[in-house]
Design a protein around this nucleic acid. Structure first.
Lengths: 212, 212
DNA sequence: TTGTAGAAAATTGTATACAATATGAAAGAG
DNA sequence: CTCTTTCATATTGTATACAATTTTCTACAA
C-alpha cells in the first residue's frame, strides 16, 4: 500500500499504541473516535483495524466492535514456550553457519548493556536486552522467521516486563548469561549455548509469571 | 467481526482461492472485479484485502494495487528452514508431555495415508500427510505456535507440492517415515524421532526445489 | 432495591460518489 | 519503424450518507 496512505497512517499509529501498552488489552477501539483524533474518515480507520486483525493485535466482537487483544496467563506460557522454540532453533542455525560480524554485534550489544546498567539507565539496558535476542533471530537471515518473531509480540512483551522489574541482580544475571551465550558461540560449544539460553529464558518466565 | 459480515465473506473467499493456488502468486486483485463477482461494495473487498495483507497473503504495491504474494526460491528455503524449526520444536515439546490420545491420532492418520495410497487416492493421501504434520503442531496445545504454523503457508505449500508430484516411491518413503516418528514417540526415543523428522523434511525440500 | 420495557444515543456495516492517480492506447515526431 | 507525448480509461484512495444494530439511559412497576 502506498506508504503515505491514510489507512497506513492510522495502522501505524494504533499499532504503536498497542505494542507500547498505551492501549491495554481488552480496550475497545471506536472507529469514529480514531477518525476524529487523526482527522481521517472512518473508512481509513476501518481498514487499519482489519489489518491489525490480520496480525492478531485486535479482534472483532461477535456483535461488532473492535477490541485490543488480551493477554491471558495461558498466553504468557505459550509465548514463553514459543519464544524458546524460536530462539533455540535460531541459535542452532547460527551454529551451522558461523558469522563473525554477528558475533561482533552481539558483543557490542553486551557491552552496551553493561554500560547502561552501570550508569543506571535501566530502560536502555532493557532495550539492549531485547536487541540481543532479536539479533540472534536476525542472524539466521531467514526473513520469515524474523517476521514471525517480530509479529509474535515477544519483543514488546519483553519490554513491558523490563520496564517494571528493575532488580539489580536480574540485570547482572542477564549480562552474564548473554555473554556466556556469545562465548559458547565463539567456542563452538553448542551444549553450553543451549543450556544457557534455556536457563536464561526460564528465569525470564519466572519473573513474568509473578506479574500477571 | 460478525461472522456473516460481507467483508468476512470476501475475506474467506479470496483466502481460499489463494491458499488453494487458484490465485497464482503475483496475480493482481482488482477491487471492483471482486466487488462485482461477489455482489458487494468495494469497501467490503478493501477491508478483506487489508486483513489478508495483515496475514501476509497479499501485499499492496507502492503505486497502489493489491497482489497475491509471490514465492521466490529464497522463500522456499526459508519456509523449509522455518518448518524444520517449528516441527522439531513441537516434537520436542511432545516428548516432554506425553499424550496417548495424540499418538492414537497420529497412528490413525498413518493408516488413512496408507489406505489412500494403496487405493490410488493420491490427493487424499496428500491431505493426510499435511494433517500428520499439523497434528504434531497441535499436540503442543500452544495456540500461538499453532496459529503461526497455519499462517506460515506451510500446509498449503505442502499441498501444492503434493498435488504435483505423485511418485510412488515418495509416498512409500513418507509412510515409513511417518510411522517411524510415531514409533519413536511411543518408545520415547528422541534421537530417532529427531533424525527421522529432519531427514523427512530434507527429502521434501529436494522435491520442492526441483519445482520452483 | 431490583428488574424490566422502551426510547434515545452511539456505533457499526454497507453503499455510493468523487477526486487523484496509474495504465494503456492512439497519434505524431524523429 | 521506433520513440514520445497526449489523451481516454481503469483503478484506487477517501469522504460522506444512511440503514441496521447495539448500547446506554430513563422511567416505571414489582
Amino acid at each position: 500500500m502506498k506508504e503515505d496512505s491514510l489507512a497506513n497512517k492510522v495502522y501505524l499509529e494504533v499499532r504503536k499504541k498497542i505494542l507500547s501498552s498505551q492501549l491495554a488489552g481488552g480496550a475497545r477501539l471506536v472507529e469514529s473516535a480514531w477518525a476524529d483524533k487523526l482527522a481521517v474518515s472512518r473508512v481509513a480507520v476501518r481498514e487499519a483495524f482489519m489489518r491489525l486483525a490480520g496480525e492478531s493485535l485486535v479482534e472483532f466482537g461477535e456483535k461488532g466492535g473492535c477490541f485490543v487483544k488480551k493477554m491471558t496467563v495461558e498466553d504468557v506460557r505459550d509465548i514463553r514456550e514459543l519464544r524458546e522454540l524460536l530462539e533455540v532453533g535460531a541459535l542452532k542455525i547460527l551454529f551451522s553457519k558461523k558469522n563473525n560480524e554477528l558475533i561482533d554485534d552481539l558483543e557490542l550489544i553486551c557491552n552496551d548493556f553493561s554500560d547502561m546498567v552501570s550508569k543506571g539507565y535501566y530502560g536502555g539496558a532493557c532495550e539492549a536486552d531485547v536487541r540481543f535476542h532479536e539479533r540472534i533471530i536476525e542472524g539466521t537471515c531467514n526473513s520469515r522467521l524474523i517476521a514471525i518473531y517480530k509479529n509474535s509480540n515477544i519483543p514488546l512483551f519483553h519490554m513491558k516486563l523490563g520496564a517494571i522489574l528493575g532488580q539489580m541482580e536480574d540485570y547482572l544475571d542477564t549480562e552474564q548469561e548473554h555473554r556466556a551465550i556469545v562465548d559458547a558461540l565463539k567456542a563452538n560449544d553448542w551444549n553450553k549455548a543451549y543450556e544457557t539460553l534455556v536457563h536464561h529464558l526460564d528465569r525470564g518466565e519466572q519473573e513474568a509469571l509473578e506479574l500477571v
